[in-house]
Design a protein around this nucleic acid. Sequence first.
DNA 1: GAGAATTACGTAAACGTTTACGTAGAACGC
DNA 2: GCGTTCTACGTAAACGTTTACGTAATTCTC
Lengths: 338, 338
Amino acid sequence: MNPTIKDVAKHANVSIATVSRIVNGLPGYSEETKKKVQQSIEALGYQPNAIARGLINKRTQTIGVLFPDVSGMLSSEVLEGVENAAHDGGFSVIVCNTTSSGKRTVKYLRLLQEKRVDGIIFASEDVKEEYYKIFQEMKVPVVLVSTASAKYDLPFVRVNDFDGAFQATEYLIHKGHKVIGMIGGSEEDPIAGVPRMQGFQKALESNGLTYTKYHITKNEGYRFQNGKESLPQLLKELPNMTALFAASDEMAIGAMSAAHQLGIRVPEELSIIGYDNLKIAEMCYPPLTTVSQPLKDMGQTSCEMLVSMIKGEKQEAKSRYMPFTIVERQSVSDLHDK
Amino acid sequence: MNPTIKDVAKHANVSIATVSRIVNGLPGYSEETKKKVQQSIEALGYQPNAIARGLINKRTQTIGVLFPDVSGMLSSEVLEGVENAAHDGGFSVIVCNTTSSGKRTVKYLRLLQEKRVDGIIFASEDVKEEYYKIFQEMKVPVVLVSTASAKYDLPFVRVNDFDGAFQATEYLIHKGHKVIGMIGGSEEDPIAGVPRMQGFQKALESNGLTYTKYHITKNEGYRFQNGKESLPQLLKELPNMTALFAASDEMAIGAMSAAHQLGIRVPEELSIIGYDNLKIAEMCYPPLTTVSQPLKDMGQTSCEMLVSMIKGEKQEAKSRYMPFTIVERQSVSDLHDK
DNA sequence: GAGAATTACGTAAACGTTTACGTAGAACGC
DNA sequence: GCGTTCTACGTAAACGTTTACGTAATTCTC
């Protein structure tokens, strides 16, 4: 098997305690023995065993990350940030794909509990009571990213969706649009669904434009297909609509795709603004104007928060709203120009 | 702290050995004590400590996955498959983002070694000697996904890129195209770069079409931007080109984007076929015809192979070429129809 | 130059499991 | 009824570390 600290000790003719001290940079040995031991380590190719270490330190230097959809573009950008910060902080990350079904989440949480992860990042999903109980049992820090919890006091990192939607809508209004529709998410979704619809509604109303429930189509998810199917619906309700706000980039691009098929030119006949700023937003044609969530940053800061909580620096890290921006590309036209 | 096996033993008035046997389903106790112990486990909320278990079993039930670009769409789809299979096999996955630079790869490999992962999945990157040495030191199974190694005998899971490129090109030829360009990857890349160019060349030549080095633009990467910049170049060399094969979907979509800007209609004036079949392939407009790599499947089977190697079922799992297919969408026109 | 403080180690317990081995009692064979 | 084989446990070592504590030798203090 791999050489252990004992082998090194024997080889260098010292005790294991001394080797341990040298490996961990603790004081208590001469320069001479240090060299001797380091040579033995080299010679044997010794690598400390993190498992044994974890057992005694009660620290695994590992965090768990739960995503409802690992392969989703949103998740993967957040993951990149998380992984980055974790690595910088000396942690590894175990990814768990909860597949947006509850049963698997609990299984994963139990697994992470058994593996004694030092902390958890929980993404894009609502925190159910069941989950929260396990969090408490585990007694490890948890931070929510791209979600939040009304019921439980857990630190989160996200953008203010109400404001984001509000400003996206006002952006369209300022471009001279008067009849604006929205492709929305789910009314059941208190995180990304409802606030974006409310922001949209508020923007219309505070700018003196009419708002009815027919201005929004509701969807189960936030996928391409949802957007594609929503456009015709919306068009039926609002035939003279000149612009629309989609609650996700995927839906926005779905709508663009539907528009192409219907022979509606974007942005000449229909302006579209999205939400997320995924990588695809600049790849589609026309490039999508959208509300940019700093996804990677969000992953990164959430992980930094978690790490500092683990290290005990901040017992109660406080939640953060991340800044969003509207990135202007070419899917929105300015009616004033005509 | 969390209750340990000792606490359970005390609570149930048995020895820790008995508790261990019951927890692990080994024989050697009466139904009566089993019940008693299970009740104690319930009462205390005992969860076995996987770290302690790992220490003694020399099995962590964890695998490491190395990607050069975690947030890339290709990686994330593969990751989903890997995660899935790992979970089914009772393993957790630690993700590592090697960021396509070598230095970090070695650091990660060392880390995985310290954490005593049971196996490694290595994706989309060339296996350098340095890495291979560590693989050997670690003495754990490794499987390559979406890559392969000429020098080292490591099992891989991938598609045959030469064939894929060949068929993609023939697809265009069968649609009546005579002047076909390619947006290629890197000549330095023996995995995804060279074989795809060779497949392209071979297809042209065996169908009696002219091939020159000007038929291919070479690129450092496989990204959107590479494709976008390549189209004008290619058009300069081949002004009467009617179709092109891009070595990745991102590049294909980059080319589509450039075409839009240049006022070239796809597919009427220019047909484009991609490679990968990422999710964006069906989201762009027009939807991209492309050669489909079963990304998720590849992740899944590579992980299944790894797990069975870990379990010792197959000492030497053999490499697998996965089937690709050409999925026809709307970015290629049939010249015979005119 | 004697006592105190410091340095440079070594010893052994602890972390939470698994498991080889031992053993007392029960069941069995005849 | 006596030896044998099971059954149902318990004991203790082992996995590879960290670390509190002990101790001998060295250095310092005056």
